[in-house]
Design a protein around this nucleic acid. Structure first.
Length: 736
DNA sequence: CCAGGACACGTTTTT
DNA sequence: CGTGTCCTGG
């Protein structure tokens, strides 16, 4: 059967990947090589030419965004080829989403209550803190966050509390105890955290051979996106499901594995061929995104890593501009440089949203934001707080959760006194103690304590009011539509007023978000007839926190970390802070594996750029309150000179080491003996003692020069502003 | 309850 | 240095 529309316009490697005979397949997809296209076309090809049912395909991604995109593109493809298929009923989703779907369908086999609740990391931490109280642990000595990290790490490796080996190490012993108690609490409350979804789903296979057999028969074709990001449980879950007969297509790029620190295992993709017999390997190396200079730079950098599966990006397109390297004087200068380049770019008729500023750590954004703010350039920070992660939304959702399930302890704790209704810490402690003693939920404990009049009149009344409130919501939840319930939560619990009266613009924003929640509830479409719309909505909210920001349609410069830039592309890209100890980060330079991950991050960063890439580093940087002096990043040095062009001619100044001990803000200006100053300023068109005018600072007299060329820095004693150091290139001085 | 101060901390993030 | 958290005093 022919399916020309599926293979037209594919290059040879893509064609090979899409039309390969059914079998195990490893598609090594370089950055910008048309990966999603291949994945989607492969699915359509199987369906349209191989007679594979779309419902016997399992397609797994990591993020909801990726899953949505895949679904949308499948919809489009199927629609265009005249074979409309309901992709909503296909098994396309995230690992967590699919695991959840399985556990919902087989809650009994999974040994879960039917209405088990998903615990987000906030709830999880809260629960761990409660475990601490129960165990009488010192939160100072063993930070609860560490316990959370530990528990999730163990689960990611497929390990339960009982699997942790006896250890003499007090840390391990303590953590194991916390894990164990936490597990018991989750068990009692029917609570499932994110890692637990995966672990349970894996155990579901292992403990129910018949069930596993059923799904193995159901899904003879499995496709996994971003395979290099799979962690141990995810890999194991897939491996078991695939069994001996299913065909697995793994799509990924070992060179873009940047999540090792949260459990992802590059080895999973590297050993794929060994684990899945007769794997056909296809390399997608032709790049449709970047210019030649950019790709060659990326290739050269990543070539320094060992044990790669190997891949070299190339393009039919032009070499383009070399990468520009700017050595900033300090982080302010760096920001100013970037903003000026953006201003130029926009002046040439480009959009602001076509530029991205990438950085290694979030702390770097502040200075960049300030510089953008100064020039009134709108910007958007990617990866901010998402809708369902907002405090006010979580509070409202907690009421809805209680309406769905009164035994949801994390929800109970969150809102029992939010807004304040006179149930103080003491009362809540008493309820917790009672619940713990009787092994029941906080809700049940509250009812019991009220019944037996175990509380003071005042606390009792307040608690009674809360119980009544929730009872009424529970009642309503069975009678009215979801958005009406949400509205009712806002009206009756006081949460709307509570957040609205928060000071500043915050209150306004929170009120708007809460109203938005009602709208979202109105727009929610339930997929499953057998379960309450409310429960489905809550699960969706827990598994998909929504988009990061509301005003994403405004034309704005994009700011983000290198990590969150993965998968995106921009015509103009700035990589800021390319300095040793910042990038690669100092926490990663000692360990070769972690250093390689940093290098992959550099590779990801470079390959985001389509037309033009600027790499910036700063000779001095204020970090954690003190001045740091870092060399240019080793990754920059790994880029061959032919692809680089220095924007600033490096000055001839050599800074003595002792400068680091000097307290002054501008250490290199301190003493004449330490720094070779060019007192002529010959190549600048200005001379010492000359009177000049500056747009912002007014008139002044030149009192020092340093460096040469356009990067020459000049000290001016302004009449009204005092002395300042400026970079000649930017200062735009005029002789008076 | 909340403002304000002391104090600690400082890489990356999705579900 | 800037931010977030925890604690205390009013």
């Amino acid at each position: 059967m022919e399916a020309p529309e599926l293979v037209d316009n594919l290059n040879q490697a893509q064609h090979q990947a899409v039309t390969a005979d059914p079998g195990n397949q490893l598609i090594l997809a370089g950055a910008g090589s048309g990966k999603t296209r291949v994945l989607v076309h492969r699915i359509a090809w199987l369906v349209q030419t191989q007679g594979v049912s779309p419902y016997s395909i399992l397609a797994v991604t990591f993020t909801n965004k990726a899953a949505r995109e895949m679904r949308a593109r499948l919809d489009e493809l199927f629609r265009d080829s005249g074979t409309p298929i309901n992709t909503r009923s296909m098994w396309v989703g995230t690992f967590h989403g699919l695991a959840h779907r399985l556990l919902k369908a087989h809650w009994k086999d999974a040994k879960l209550p039917q209405n088990f609740q998903i615990l987000d990391s906030d709830d999880q931490l809260r629960l761990i803190k409660r475990v601490y109280q129960n165990l009488g642990l010192d939160a100072e000595r063993w930070p609860p966050r560490q316990a959370q990290w530990f528990i999730n790490g163990q689960k990611d490796e497929g390990l339960r509390a009982k699997h942790i080996q006896e250890s003499a190490d007090p840390f391990v012993r303590t953590m194991a105890a916390v894990y164990s108690a936490y597990e018991a609490d989750c068990e009692r409350g029917g609570l499932v955290d994110f890692a637990e979804l995966l672990l349970r789903a894996h155990e579901l296979w292992l403990n129910n051979p018949a069930l596993l057999n059923h799904y193995q028969g159901r899904f003879p074709y499995i496709l996994v996106d971003e395979f290099q990001d799979t962690n141990s449980v995810q890999y194991a879950w897939l491996r078991v499901l695939a069994g001996e007969a299913c065909f697995v297509t793994a799509v990924g790029d070992d060179d873009q594995s940047i999540y090792g620190w949260r459990g992802a295992k590059v080895e999973n993709i590297r050993r794929f061929e060994e684990d899945y017999p007769q794997t056909q390997v296809v390399r997608l190396e032709q790049n449709y995104r970047s210019t030649g200079h950019i790709l060659n730079a990326a290739n050269a950098v990543i070539a320094n890593n060992f044990g790669r599966l190997g891949k070299e990006l190339w393009t039919e397109g032009a070499d383009g501009d070399p990468i520009s390297l700017y050595a900033a004087f300090n982080e302010q200068d760096e920001a100013r440089f970037i903003v000026e380049r953006i201003t130029d770019w926009v002046a040439q008729g480009n959009s602001k949203s076509s530029c991205a500023i990438l950085y290694r750590s979030n702390a770097q954004s502040r200075v960049l934001e300030e510089a953008l703010l100064r020039e009134a350039i709108p910007y958007r920070i990617y990866g901010g707080q998402r809708f369902y992660d907002r405090l006010e939304i979580k509070n409202a959702l907690a009421y809805m959760r209680l309406a769905a399930n009164q035994f949801d302890d994390p929800a109970f704790e969150r809102v029992i006194n939010t807004p304040t209704r006179g149930i103080g810490g003491k009362t809540v402690d008493d309820i917790r103690a009672f619940a713990r003693e009787h092994g029941c939920s906080l809700w049940q404990a509250s009812e019991q304590m009220l019944q037996h009049k175990m509380l003071s009149a005042r606390a009792g009344n307040a608690l009674q009011g809360f119980i009544k409130l929730i009872d009424e919501l529970t009642q309503k939840s069975q009678e009215i539509a979801l958005d009406q319930l949400a509205k009712s939560v806002l009206d009756t619990t006081g949460i709307f007023e509570f957040h609205k009266k928060e000071k500043g613009e915050k209150g306004q924003a929170r009120a708007e978000n809460l109203e938005e929640l009602v709208t979202a509830c109105g727009a929610f479409e339930a997929a499953d007839e057998d379960e309450s719309v409310l429960q489905q909505f809550l699960d969706t909210a827990a598994l998909d926190a929504g988009e990061a920001q509301a005003d994403e349609f405004e034309d704005a410069v994009q700011l983000m970390t290198l990590h969150s830039a993965k998968g995106l592309e921009f015509p103009l890209v700035f990589m800021a802070g390319a300095e040793e100890n910042l990038f690669p980060h100092k926490m990663s330079v000692e360990d070769p594996d972690r250093l390689e991950e940093e290098r992959r991050l550099a590779y990801v960063g470079i390959t985001r750029a389509m037309q033009k890439l600027y790499i910036c580093y700063s000779e001095t940087r204020r970090l954690h309150g003190s001045e740091t002096f870092n060399a240019v990043s080793r990754f920059v040095k790994e880029i061959p000179n032919e692809h680089l062009e220095e924007v600033r001619i490096k000055s001839t100044i050599t800074r003595p080491a002792r400068l680091q001990n000097q307290g002054s803000r501008s250490p290199s200006r301190g003493s004449k003996s330490a720094v070779r100053l060019s007192d002529s300023g010959a190549d600048t068109g200005f001379r010492l003692g000359q009177r000049i005018a500056h747009k912002k600072f007014g008139e002044g007299i030149i009192i020092h020069f340093e460096g040469s060329g356009p990067s020459t820095r000049v000290q001016i004693n302004f009449d009204s502003e005092g002395t300042k150091w400026l970079v000649m290139q930017y200062a735009k001085l005029e002789a008076v």
